[in-house]
């Protein structure tokens, strides 16, 4: 029970210290919050970009042309394509429809009417999942080409490559930025702990002299860091919410120009919970290490 009591007291002490210096606390929380909101905003942006790319009419597709006219053979072909990993949708464009569209687009109705027979094949349009790597496309192209009744397989390799590269770039940038800012948070928290320890120097010294263990002295600082991380994470969520509220009208205007198929994405509930939890863990770890280092340095001066 004394273990629980010790933790309760340390937590209360940490909370008290935070509240005793409201302005310093506020600024620290803002710094941590801002440092966190940037990669979080970037993450949300990436999420939206991915979502948007998935809804673009130019999303990379593989067109499989087939020579068969037999409905059963068509169905078998469609099923074997659907069975491949990474395939998210298969759409059949019948040769009659294709000819009609072509005639309309090129305005050559008369010419088409004069044709003895439809020269176009049936086409299966294959859409792959948004995270499919570019080499999977070429793999599938070869696979589909080897299927029975297939005439040819076509896809826009260059566009596909570009989209993939774009996504990779944003993802890596967000990751790198997140890493840098995790370091920033660690430094901010470690610094506030250092200042805390300096102002509490007398108390720490006396506590050591009357039989306080290192863990006892470290504990309030750890909770101090934990609270800073937790509240900093929540501040970041608030900033993020404010930011998306401000940008919402402009985003809506933008997406409308793409036919409104796109609903802006925000952090999911689990992501919104994970953010403050992760920062709290990071901050308490940083506080623990900072306290350990500084207390260790203090000992010989007794």
């Amino acid at each position: 029970m004394s273990w629980l009591l010790n933790h309760q007291r340390a937590f209360r002490l940490a909370l008290l210290r935070l509240l005793q210096t409201p302005f310093a606390t506020l600024f620290t929380l803002l710094v941590v919050g801002l440092a966190l909101s940037l990669p979080s905003a970037m993450y949300v942006g990436l999420k939206n970009l991915n979502h948007w790319l998935g809804h673009l009419p130019i999303s990379p597709e593989i067109s499989v042309f087939t020579q068969t006219d037999d409905p059963a053979a068509l169905r078998t072909l469609e099923q074997s394509i659907r069975g491949e990993a990474g395939v998210s949708a298969v759409r059949l464009i019948r040769r009659e429809d294709a000819l009609k569209t072509l005639a309309q687009q090129l305005n050559i109705n008369d010419l088409v009417d004069g044709l003895a027979r439809n020269p176009l094949p049936h086409t299966l349009v294959v859409t792959l999942g948004p995270d499919t790597p570019p080499d999977r496309y070429s793999q599938l192209q070869q696979k589909f080409a080897a299927l029975p009744t297939v005439l040819a397989v076509q896809y826009d390799a260059a566009l596909n490559q570009k989209l993939h590269a774009l996504r990779q770039l944003v993802a890596n940038a967000a990751l790198g930025l997140g890493f840098l800012l995790a370091i920033a948070i660690t430094a901010v928290v470690a610094n506030t702990i250092r200042l805390q320890i300096l102002t509490q120097r007398d108390e720490i010294e006396v506590s050591m002299l009357i039989g306080a263990t290192d863990a006892y002295i470290r504990r309030p600082f750890m909770y101090f860091g934990l609270l800073q991380g937790l509240l900093g994470g929540l501040t970041a969520l608030l900033l993020l919410a404010g930011f998306s509220w401000l940008t919402q009208p402009y985003l809506a205007e933008f997406t409308q120009s793409y036919g409104n198929t796109f609903i802006p994405q925000s952090l999911s509930l689990s992501e919104a919970i994970a953010l403050p939890v992760c920062t709290a863990a990071l901050a308490s770890l940083s506080a623990h290490i900072a306290a350990m280092r500084h207390l260790h340095r203090m000992r010989p001066s007794l």
């Binding site: 004394s2 108390e203 006396v206 039989g211 006892y216």
Partner: peptide
Amino acid sequence: VFQDHKLLYERSVFDNTALPLLVQGVP
């Protein structure tokens, strides 16, 4: 008992005296 007392001057007499007990986790 220290030559320079080593009291915590921003803490009350009660809190100063209670410190060793707090450190030991006394209820």
